[in-house]
Each structure stands twice: as C-alpha cells, then as structure tokens.
Simulated scan of single mutants.
Amino acid sequence: MSATQQAEDVKETATTGVKLTDAAAAKVKALIEQEGEEGLRLRVEVSPGGCSGLRYGLYFDTDNREGDVVQSYEGFEVVVDRMSVPYLMGANIDFADRIDAQGFTIDNPNAQGSCACGDSFH
C-alpha cells in the first residue's frame, strides 16, 4: 500500500468516525459475499430509541442517501449517514465468535452511559 493510499484510508476513517477491527471486517466481507447481492454495504447509524435515548443500527443495504459518508474497506464499504457521524466519531466495531460472546460489538468513546438492554446510549 502506498503512502498516498494510507493517507486516504486515514482520512476516510477520520471522516466516518467508524473503524472496524480485522475480525469485524472479515465477518462483514463474508456476510456480504454470502448474500451475493450487488452493491451491498454495511450501514452504521445512530437512531432515536432505547432506554437511554439513542441506539445503534448495523445492517446491510444498497441505498445511497444524501450526505452519506462512505469508507472503503478491502472488498466492501461502510456507510454512515451525516447525522450519525458525530455520534460515531472514534467508535470501533469488533466481532466476537466465542462461547461467552458472539456478534458485533461497538466500543464508542462518545457513549456516556448505557442501560440494561445494551443497545442504547446517551
């Protein structure tokens, strides 16, 4: 990877605010390939709801919305809507596949608290 490509990757990561671990990126890529739909991307968003006021959404779609911020990974893209970017700045998405934990997790330095349901923050 050239220095220019590395600089572009850093800029894109800083713009979307979201970073995927290697494990999460590998799982997203595998799931997209399994679906086999052209143009499928991982959308990450923050929406109203949950007992603390906001909750995360992670899902695959092909929509292009005005103001979407797109980050390219090897083999797929991550999309964040412009309203969610400030809430996700510095967030890390990981994937665990262990006996005690399975699925995607979000470590977000912007979350000042959470509640028992585990999918919301304020």
Rank of each mutant, 00 (worst) to 15 (best):
V79M: 03
G53S: 00
V85C: 10
L20P: 00
P109Q: 03
F95M: 03
D94P: 01
L40M: 09
S52H: 06
D100A: 09
A14E: 15
E38R: 14
M83Y: 12
T105G: 14
G50E: 03
P109R: 01
V44K: 01
T21N: 04
T105W: 08
P109H: 02
V85T: 13
A24M: 04
K29Q: 11
L58S: 07
C51S: 13
S120V: 02
S84D: 05
V18E: 03
A30N: 10
T105R: 07
G17P: 02
G49T: 04
N92H: 07
P109C: 05
G17T: 04
R82I: 09
V28Y: 01
S52T: 14
N92I: 13
Q34G: 11
P48T: 07
C115K: 05
H122Q: 11
S52K: 14
T62V: 05
D100T: 12
R41M: 11
Y59M: 06
A14C: 08
L31S: 13
Q112E: 12
T16F: 05
D97L: 10
Q112H: 06
A111C: 01
F76K: 04
T21Q: 04
T105N: 09
V78R: 00
T15K: 15
A96E: 13
A23V: 06
A111I: 00
A7P: 00
N92A: 10
L54Q: 13
M1S: 11
Y87K: 07
F60P: 04
A111P: 00
P48K: 12
F95G: 00
A30Q: 15
D63F: 08
F76V: 04
R65Q: 14
R41T: 05
E38F: 09
F95A: 02
L58Q: 11
F95V: 05
G57L: 10
V69S: 10
L20G: 01
G90L: 06
E8C: 08
Q71K: 15
N110C: 06
V70R: 11
F104C: 03
V78C: 01
A23N: 11
I32H: 02
F104L: 05
E33D: 14
F104I: 06
M89L: 14
L20M: 04
L88A: 02
N64Y: 08
G39W: 01
V10Q: 12
D100G: 10
